[in-house]
């Protein structure tokens, strides 16, 4: 739930999603859900020459399970807030 919230705060920011098939897609994060499925607008595929079939695609929905990494804009991530929220969530998990 914590990571879901992080992604929600990053909507309308530019992110780069690297998939498990090594395809990297940069785009504007439009929405995210609890499975970390991601919708990207205005996308650009890295190394377009290797993936010509993606050239016409302008926006997409990415199933959360095929994501390997997401590169985030570091200036929009409050690391101190993240660590505090993580400790709080870890604590509530232990108490159950």
């Amino acid at each position: 739930m914590l990571i879901f919230s992080v992604f929600k705060t990053l909507t309308d920011q530019q992110v780069t999603v690297e998939l498990k098939n090594d395809l990297s897609i940069t785009g504007i994060l439009k929405s995210v859900d609890q499975f970390l499925n991601i919708r990207l607008d205005n996308i650009k595929v890295l190394d377009e020459g290797r993936h010509p079939h993606m050239m016409a695609v302008k926006n997409c929905f990415i199933r959360g399970s095929v994501v390997r990494y997401v590169q985030l804009p570091s200036e929009h991530v409050d690391t101190q807030l993240l660590e505090d929220a993580t400790r709080r969530e870890a604590l509530s998990q232990v108490k159950r």
């Binding site: 990571i3 991530v77 690391t79 993580t86």
Partner: peptide, 22 residues
Amino acid sequence: RGDREVTGILHAYDGHMNLILS
């Protein structure tokens, strides 16, 4: 998985071991 390793400063994680690193 996939013969990859990363090092970074850990800022967040959850029960799935999703991580946020800088």
